[in-house]
Design a binder for these strands. Structure first.
Length: 242
DNA sequence: CGTATTTGACCGGCGC
DNA sequence: GCGCCGGTCAAATACG
């Protein structure tokens, strides 16, 4: 890792020009295998940029990924969870068409009207009561199609040899795709907690395969389910986020 | 044997 | 309308 100087958290908040497809993207570069507190960042980018990023315990990257990474890092993000655009989680306001999707779509639907200029006037909210179980995928699709709602995303660019970084949550892979003009596939993960629809995807940077880009979408409605046994590992990072 | 991953099918958006 | 492309589903398979 280049310089472990904390300053290394050269966060380069990076504004996408094509925000349309990527409403809210921030890139952060981390030194080597320092892990990233993904959700914490969702609370506010500010918080994140001031992260004391000097890796307290530099671990060899090539070793057991999911264990080493982030053993001391945690995050909780459930302080201002649910409720859509309320207290402006980070820069939600920036992308006009952002809502909390899926389950909340319906509610949002009924409560808001100016959503990125979608034209869906007619059959808009005939049925905005939530049906949880047995809801056909069809229905979901319809909703999705009708309102192309995209949850805010957060991207982390990390120098790491391991693809998937342990962020404290449990993920199940549900897909993998090769993307055009890249040699490395992109894999898709979903949080395993039920009722939590947070997704993330992991890919390697085409230009520099040593870089991993992790993109989170949505926010957890629960705390990380990583076994909390390592709670005695007091790291500055730790209480920084709690 | 229950759960996670793999992997091709499928689907919807978008540009031509 | 068609085909490409990214994202997701889900059956089959691997894993423990």
């Amino acid at each position: 890792m280049a310089s472990t100087s904390q300053a290394m958290l050269n966060q380069s908040l990076f504004e996408e020009d094509h925000q349309e497809s990527h409403p809210q993207v921030g890139f952060f570069s981390f030194p080597s295998n320092l892990t990233l507190p993904p959700l914490a960042c969702q609370q506010s980018l500010k918080t994140f940029t001031s992260l004391p990023c000097d890796a307290p315990n530099p671990q060899p990257p090539s070793i057991n990924p999911s264990e080493t990474l982030l053993s001391s890092l945690k995050h909780r993000d459930n302080q201002d969870q649910d409720h859509f655009g309320g207290p402006h989680l980070l820069s939600l306001q920036r992308s006009s068409s952002n809502l909390w999707a899926w389950g909340e779509v319906n509610e949002c639907l009924s409560s808001k009207r100016s959503c990125g200029g979608d034209d869906h006037h007619n059959h808009n909210h005939n049925h905005h009561h939530h049906h949880h179980i047995g809801v056909s995928a069809l229905k979901m699709k319809k909703i999705k199609a009708r309102r192309k709602v995209r949850e805010p995303r957060f991207c982390f660019k990390t120098m790491s040899e391991v693809d998937v970084l342990d962020d404290g949550y449990k993920w199940r892979k549900y897909g993998q795709k090769v993307v055009k003009n890249t040699q490395h596939p992109r894999s898709y993960y979903r949080c395993t907690q039920d009722n939590c629809r947070v997704k993330k995807r992991v890919e390697r940077l085409a230009e520099d395969p040593r870089m991993v880009i992790t993109t989170y979408e949505g926010r957890h409605a629960h705390s990380p389910s990583h076994d909390m046994e390592d709670s005695q590992a007091p790291s500055q990072l730790n209480n920084f986020f709690w």
